[in-house]
Write a protein that binds this DNA or RNA. Structure first.
Lengths: 317, 317
DNA sequence: ATTCAACATGAGAAATATTCATGAAAAAAA
DNA sequence: TTTTTTTCATGAATATTTCTCATGTTGAAT
């Protein structure tokens, strides 16, 4: 490869490496294998005749050359994205209606900033939130009462398209000084006898119950609270334990308000999707909403990871 | 191809098409076949779902989408080049000495602006012009009295590397009202009996004599002048005819001062190379000087064309 | 010392880009 | 108008590049 064959691909690669702190993490984010990232980075370094990434450190460090190229990436990639957005508007029009319904309580944490960012670049799209609890949120789509539903239900339905958003880790929350404090990770049996504090939703919608406790035959007393802060309040005051997304509790963890423990050896990972009507999936303003949510979330939220490109999720061409 | 696979290659392509006014000309400039350009452009248009280039017109026109993408190209490509230059400096150092010798009289026309542009981006390189007429300019390199020689001699010598600059057309110049005025193109025999006005150099160095008149056995009276304006002055005042590079006479042609005619059916094309010592060819500040000359010349000079990548001209990696 | 996580590497497979050999259409020339 | 020339398009074959798979290496943590 020649120096004049530097491509946006390389800039995206370097940005991903720098941002995620390692080649393996970058590979996951780019939906490539670690090997591909390693090869490509080496190819780029060889072409330039300069090392870019110091692999020894963790998170990996950049050399002076790497920092210069990263500066280029930061300068050019947003320009490219803005141009592609303009082209999408030229193609599909600037306007549209996007009524967003959200199934999960904590999702407002990241949805609001994402919607703000989205409004900046798609000012002509009428963006609404469909409120209230829904027994079957996906039905809102076919009923045309919503255009996009954020759901953790990864099962596709006819007529709907699922666009993967991200995977996130659920952490078990304990008050400081709790009996389980010394354990590094918690197994289903450890929870026996505890009270579980949750949002007021049916157990079937609680990943922690459905995927961890129920399979192990553990049944806990439950107590409900509407708001994330209220749940944390209850945990902190030793009324029980809870399981919440890592991102939702990160600020409270920092202050030592509550403690977090991994659930199971690999952790308990849940997934979020944006469901849309199949014929809406290719619309530029819809696709870019999903893209914006992804980008903003990865920039903001700790403990989330990319989702493999789904069988159902045909990325709009 | 997906919309998110837009690469710098595509921006370079579009810039070349827009700048050169057609796919074929763009292909030549990019050192690709016309077919490759057509395929690549079609691939890009398909990926975006939008046409970019209106092929009917000549020079080809851009659609609104094409103009938006060209704006992106103009915004990002210079940033990329600046970054690559910085990386080259990081690798090889910022400084160096570059003594440039020029064989051809008219070359100063484009050399000065190119040197100005070069000085802006390589301020630490000591840039000098080696003046005076040289019997064997390439000898200056081995004698280390110059570091780069602009020559029209495309024959490689051991220890030297030839970097192709560009090809240019030589035009025959006539005073308005000359007997040859009505001919669209001039053949060697047409010149019989004319006086040829040239720079004061041996006939062997005059492409027009060496490659057109001499092979046809035509021998003309000669008259010499030092400066391009002086030659034009003599032609205009009917003292003879001349053959000069198209770019050197373009401004005078516009004013109808003299007339220009193509020499032979294909025209008389000459070539310019930058010769450097082989071990200097890979130095970043040397390679970028050549690149700057090319870029500036193509932006400024009419009637020039890219030179095929030469067997000798190993582009520095 | 062992294990684990992260990166490197060679070989083969897959995807992509380029060329070659034409064809079609439009402009220029006869 | 017909012919020629120029320019772009296209399908098939080829070349090149990129990616994955399988495995090796390294360094840090247990």
């Amino acid at each position: 490869m020649n120096i004049s064959h530097v491509e946006l691909r390389h800039l995206r690669l370097l940005a991903a490496v720098a941002d995620s702190g390692g080649l393996t993490a970058a590979a996951e984010r780019l939906h490539l294998t670690q090997s591909a990232v390693s090869h490509q980075l080496k190819g780029l370094e060889d072409a330039l005749g300069l090392p870019l990434v110091e692999r020894a450190a963790r998170p990996v460090g950049l050399t002076a050359a790497g920092r210069r190229l990263l500066a280029l990436a930061h300068a050019t990639l947003p320009q490219v994205e803005a141009a592609l957005r303009d082209l999408a508007k030229l193609k599909d029009g600037e306007a549209g209606e996007l009524r967003v319904a959200v199934e999960c309580h904590t999702c407002y944490d990241w949805l609001m900033p994402a919607m703000d960012a989205y409004r900046d670049v798609w000012p002509a799209v009428e963006l609404d939130l469909v409120g209230g609890f829904q027994a079957d949120p996906l039905a809102l789509l076919s009923e045309r009462r919503a255009d996009l539903v954020v759901t953790s239900d990864g099962v596709s339905r006819p007529g709907l398209t699922l666009l993967p958003l991200f995977g996130y880790e659920m952490l078990a929350l304990l008050p400081p000084g709790h009996a389980l404090e010394k354990k590094k990770l918690l197994l289903p049996a450890d929870f026996a006898g505890q009270t579980l504090i949750t949002y007021p939703v049916p157990e079937a919608r609680l990943d922690f119950v459905r995927r961890v406790l129920a399979p192990a035959g553990v049944k806990l007393a439950r107590r409900e609270a509407e708001l994330t802060v209220a749940i944390l309040q209850l945990v902190a005051s030793r009324r029980g334990v809870a399981a919440l997304p890592a991102w939702a509790v990160a600020p409270y963890l920092e202050r030592g308000y509550v403690l977090a423990r991994r659930i199971g050896p690999q952790g308990l990972w849940a997934e979020l999707y944006a469901a849309v009507r199949a014929d809406d999936a290719a619309r530029a303003y819809v696709a870019d909403f999903v893209e914006t949510v992804r980008r903003e979330s990865f920039a903001r939220l700790p403990g989330i990871r990319p989702l493999a490109l789904h069988q159902v999720a045909a990325v709009p061409r």
